[in-house]
Design a binder for these strands. Structure first.
Length: 550
DNA sequence: GTAGGGTTAG
């Protein structure tokens, strides 16, 4: 299969200098000539003005998501603001802060935040949302707590931002308490019925696995608040997370009734929902009805097809995307590369990698991680490692991919070496690190390394994370240690049907049939619930293996 | 007067 790129000039045009901003300012500030005059004075650098409104306007223009201000100009905004002596003005400083936070410049935003003599509710809210957007939800949550402790009463803006942080935070996800406290705060401030806060609460509960999401939307209907597109998107996403297909279909009906089929984002989330529940044909039909397909529409479609590992159809879709004038982005390349890895199609994978490079994504961490995934799944481990070593940007996920690559090929020593170096260099492992490294020990009976990883899980507070505990149980089963597995489940503080099932099947996988039967008897004496189909099938398999059934 | 919620991606 050959893929050909049709676009010739992929590099973004770099705008000249201040003139670019000037043009943007003229276009967007026709009612505010002060911005124009300030910018004009910047360009000539002769008459510095002290008009904070004009400076604010200039920053606002630069911070606007539609503006791609040149880097030289961006670098000058902060010193210019300080030089003009307006750093004491909270309103202007807020604008500068929003400028940094929207661009994901965390260190500048944090520096400025520290410098500020006075902070208001907007300062704090902009910081919280900036942290979430830049992938630092834990920091956002901590800032929110400091804000409340500092005596600020959160409004709908702050609550919507912090709920988003709550949804994205791995630490917060382990505990529902924080989400409930936020709902309490919203209720106290009479903001739980606010459309923004309501949508965010709905998603938060859905991500915790509470079907109360549906009720929330019904309540919004009853209280006379008209749901907007965001509400629908959150509700469809919530029904997709909680696997409430009926509710999702009702929402689909409401989307048609309320003529929201013209909204691309609403349609995108519907396509995604139908793919996730396995109704591929409906998903494809809805995709066909999207009039203005954006990159997310195509990505949703490609990733839905990739989930079935339908490499040919997904690749066709990838080609169609460019043909219809929609440029692939880092998500598109990540999905395609991972699909090539899953299908062990190194030839197609390398072509996609070449295209990603041409499109300017060679330094993108999401794409780089997917390249490591593709190379290692295709068995090109040494290539993957060479690529990993030469990367200029890395994150924890990059290391996880390389460790997972070693794990997949049972290179336990290499996986362990990388895991140790990750910890030694001060990086914090995350919930994906442990399953990746433990995968290498499915066959290796190395108790000493097991203990080290287990200790790290406990130290970093991942004992209750279900993927981590499941992979630990599997590793304990590889050692044949029943007591070890039971301890892991106990440490996870969630001894449910699922964890019993995982434990029994892990022992079955290693042919430890007597252990499966021992665990089943223990389950019957300790647990009041009836065994589910998965447990029964596991036990029956163990019986069959032990020739207890003839 | 500024800030905010969503969809694709591990």
């Amino acid at each position: 299969m050959m893929l050909r790129s049709k676009s010739s000039s992929m590099k973004p045009a770099v705008a000249g200098s201040w003139t670019f901003l000037l043009q943007a300012a003229i276009a967007s500030t026709t009612k505010r000539p002060s911005a124009f005059s300030t910018l004009a004075s910047y360009t000539t650098a002769t008459i510095p003005t002290r008009d904070p409104f004009a400076i604010m306007n200039a920053i606002s223009v630069a911070a606007s998501p539609s503006t791609t201000a040149p880097p030289s100009m961006r670098r000058q905004l902060h010193p210019s603001t300080i030089k003009l002596g307006v750093c004491a003005d909270t309103f202007t400083m807020d604008h500068l802060l929003i400028f940094y936070s929207r661009r994901g410049n965390l260190s500048c935003a944090l520096d400025l935040f520290d410098e500020m003599l006075q902070r208001n509710l907007v300062t704090w809210t902009a910081m919280v949302s900036g942290m979430v957007r830049s992938g630092a939800p834990e920091l956002g949550l901590r800032l929110f707590v400091s804000m409340v402790r500092g005596g600020f009463c959160p409004n709908e803006f702050a609550l919507a931002s912090v709920l988003s942080a709550c949804c994205q935070s791995v630490e917060a996800n382990a505990k529902l308490g924080l989400g409930l406290s936020l709902h309490g705060l919203a209720f106290k401030a009479a903001l739980d019925g606010n459309p923004y806060v309501g949508s965010s609460l709905m998603l938060m509960y859905a991500k915790y696995g509470y079907v109360a999401a549906a009720e929330q939307l019904v309540q919004m209907h009853h209280s006379g608040i008209t749901p907007d597109v965001f509400t629908y998107i959150s509700a469809v996403k919530a029904s997709s997370i909680t696997r409430e297909l009926k509710f999702g279909q009702q929402l689909h009906g409401l989307v048609i009734q309320n003529m929201l089929q013209s909204d691309t984002s609403v349609m995108n989330v519907l396509v995604d929902m139908y793919f996730r529940v396995g109704l591929k044909d409906i998903a494809v039909a809805i995709f066909g009805k999207i009039r203005r397909k954006d990159t997310i529409s195509w990505n949703t479609m490609i990733s839905g097809l990739a989930r079935d590992e339908d490499e040919k159809v997904a690749a066709d879709c990838f080609v169609d995307m460019s043909r219809y004038g929609c440029k692939p982005n880092q998500v598109t390349f990540s999905v395609m590369l991972r699909l090539c890895g899953a299908k062990e199609n190194a030839s197609l994978g390398l072509q996609i990698f070449g295209l990603a490079y041409l499109h300017g994504y060679s330094d993108n961490v999401l794409v780089a991680n997917a390249v490591i995934n593709m190379l290692s799944r295709c068995g090109l481990l040494s290539c993957a490692y060479a690529f990993f070593c030469n990367l200029s940007v890395r994150n924890v996920a990059t290391c996880n991919e390389m460790i997972a690559g070693y794990g997949l090929h049972s290179c336990s020593e290499d996986a362990m070496r990388l895991f140790r170096s990750l910890v030694c260099f001060g990086a914090k492992p995350d919930e994906f690190t442990y399953p990746a490294v433990l995968c290498a020990f499915q066959q290796a009976h190395d108790a000493r390394n097991h203990e080290q990883i287990h200790a790290s899980v406990l130290k970093h507070g991942f004992a209750s994370c279900k993927f981590v505990s499941a992979s630990l149980v599997k590793a304990k089963a590889a050692l044949g240690s029943i007591q070890g597995s039971l301890k892991v489940t106990k440490d996870a503080e969630k001894v449910d049907l699922v964890s019993w099932g995982i434990t029994m099947s892990a022992f079955l996988k290693h042919g430890l049939n007597d252990e499966v039967l021992f665990l089943f008897n223990l389950f019957r004496s300790d647990f009041t619930e009836k065994p589910d189909e998965f447990i029964l099938a596991t036990v029956l398999n163990a019986c069959a293996n032990s020739t207890l059934i003839r």
